[in-house]
Write a protein that binds this DNA or RNA. Structure first.
Lengths: 228, 228
DNA sequence: CGTCCCTTGGTGACAAAGTCACTGAATCGC
DNA sequence: GCGATTCAGTGACTTTGTCACCAAGGGACG
């Protein structure tokens, strides 16, 4: 239960779709939901687990990834404030095991919903349904995109595209990330990432130093991600 | 609209969950739904398309696959009688573009549902919701499984596992399938499949002739798919 | 300040998989 | 039977993953 008006306000702000719901539904949400805080690195769900509740993220981000037997891993998608892990939702609604791992990438504040309420609201609340379906579809597309990238795209292209994508979020042209972290994002291995980065460096497209990648020729990088 | 009692019977038999629904809901389904027949090879949905209706398969099977720029492709899952393509569902419910291709692998009879009804029934019918959620979750797991296989498993293992899986459906130990078809299933290329098959053949595990693969040592094959 | 240790990245050799160009063999339609 | 098409085999090469090992950078701490 969430009583504090400040916390209620934060919940409404993080999940705008709630504004479109009737007063009684919001009251129901406040009554049924619990606030939790999870530290960095906290494992939320592991492969094969059955999900006991659905977390709706208020602050922080979660990372959902696949882990191979050999230790390699790949990030499937992230769960940001205002979102929830729909794979969890689908597991709850169907009673199946979770097919991946989920971990707190930063400290996470979330409200958790019990499976019974998740199901009930699907029946009673149109906005809740819309919210969940939107998330399911967008995740599905992200995962399909990952599959496409892994199968059909060359690693140098994927790497360049990823670095360019980061640049929009990060400050300037400097990317603070280790080769290992990049490998985990793209589902590759550190050695290969190092090799590819060295190739790009020798073409003058970027510069690497310990823990830092500096994009030098952004227009050229953008060109190469588009072409073959 | 489906009036013919025979057709109504067939629909109920293909979708057992309908038996658990009230009389009025079944009447609604019969009233809103249209029967279609699609020939082999008919493209149902292409990448980037917006889905105009949801097909529920009565007979035949559809194949959903990803196609790369280079022409390579990979089968994601199949839609059998009693199922529907949930990616389509999710596209309909969220208004997003379809992120893959769907094609009739054999002649398909299906009933199609308009998006408005798909959405409405999500609100009004508990069994319909359960049916859709079950499908979404099972597909999600299949796609996650494909991703896992592609990223973390060796091709020879995947190939052996696939062949063994076929054996259960097919008759005896003979598998009638071209190398190209196997490549499409596993997201590889014909040449590589040929190479791997030759390797397995030289180990005495199977024998290949044009369009046919004969599994010789099934216990050994099963062993190898389990080990590293 | 120096030592230890952990993280990060570099390297070379090899294996697995994908690509390309070309060949030959089996099969089908007529 | 004959030509076209489908199916499979091959070799050379590239890309990617794996393994083992090394070296540099940077903290923790006495």
């Amino acid at each position: 239960m969430i009583g504090d008006p400040r916390q209620r306000r934060r919940l409404l702000d993080a999940f705008p779709f709630l504004h479109g719901t009737p007063e009684e539904f919001r009251a129901e949400v406040f009554a049924q939901v619990t606030l939790v805080r999870l530290p960095v690195g906290q494992l939320i769900c592991h492969d094969g687990a059955h999900c006991a509740q659905l977390p709706l993220v208020l602050t922080g981000t979660g990372r959902v990834y696949k882990l191979g037997e050999n230790g390699r891993e790949i990030t499937l998608y992230r769960v940001h404030p205002g979102e929830s892990c729909v794979v969890t939702t689908s597991c709850i609604l169907s009673g199946r095991a979770f097919p991946a791992f989920a971990v707190c990438e930063s400290a996470v504040e979330a409200v958790v919903v019990r499976p019974a309420e998740v199901r009930r609201w699907m029946a009673t609340s149109e906005p809740w349904r819309e919210y969940i379906f939107g998330l399911i579809a967008s995740r599905l597309q992200e995962v399909f995109g990952v599959l496409d990238a892994v199968l059909f795209q060359r690693l140098d292209q994927r790497l360049m595209a990823y670095l360019l994508g980061l640049r929009e979020t990060a400050s300037g042209r400097d990317i603070h990330m280790t080769h290992q972290a990049l490998a985990v994002e793209l589902g590759s291995s550190r050695e290969v990432i190092s090799r590819v980065l060295k190739g790009l460096e020798s073409q003058g497209l970027l510069r690497t130093t310990r823990g830092l990648i500096e994009l030098l020729d952004i227009p050229a990088l953008e060109l190469r991600t588009r072409e073959g």
